[in-house]
Amino acid sequence: METNKIAVNKLNLFYGDFQALHDINIEIKEKEVTALIGPSGCGKSTFIRTLNRMNDLIDIVKIDGTIQYDAMDIYKQWDLIELRKKVGMVFQKPNPFPMSIYDNIAYGPRTHGIKSRQKLNNIVENSLDQASLLDEVKDRLHKPALGLSGGQQQRLCIARVLAVEPDVVLMDEPTSALDPISTSRIEDLIDELKKSYTIVIVTHNMQQAGRISDKTAFFLHGKIEEFGGTDQIFFNPVSSKTEAYISGKFG
């Protein structure tokens, strides 16, 4: 159970001359929820984006150090398409494609070459079911996804990630645009999904980290100030800065 899914070693990241991440070392365990918390600009979103090489899209980004996924270097040994399939991402604002609910989910599998209608039907149904959205949309799969509520759209985006059978799901503030009820539903969903997936979640809401994660990393000024079990971080943190942040005294 305690296998390393992702191992980051001495990671430094620069936007041009500005160093955004300093000497990051972290091990992310399989089938656990790891939460990344910290004040704005601390590097947590930059960090999560390195895990499936989203920062490749930004020209001025320079990276040194290593990131291994399943014990293979994600820059040197993993094919980018394959990596992004295995390590999926859910963003802050729900971003369904302007097409039907069904086509949103089927988009990824189709891109990966699945054409059989039956197979696609199964994938769509399973993914929606895993994202606990199926019951709400099963009668309108061919209606536009943009007609769903914000919370439903976000669960659709999660279903869309699950449809390509990932191994790791990265979530960058997945509930910050949602109301409290939708947020609770997503949190319950994360608790359910961790039985099958490894989850890394960036959250501005440290209470959310407390509620849903197994491990918590507190980022500050581009460094990991403290990383440990969420029980320990929220009950007895080692660093006084961590304590001040989780107590709401700064940030």
Partner: peptide, 12 residues
Amino acid sequence: CDQCALIIARQQ
């Protein structure tokens, strides 16, 4: 006691 404290710390 720890169990109660952890629920308070994590679930508010």
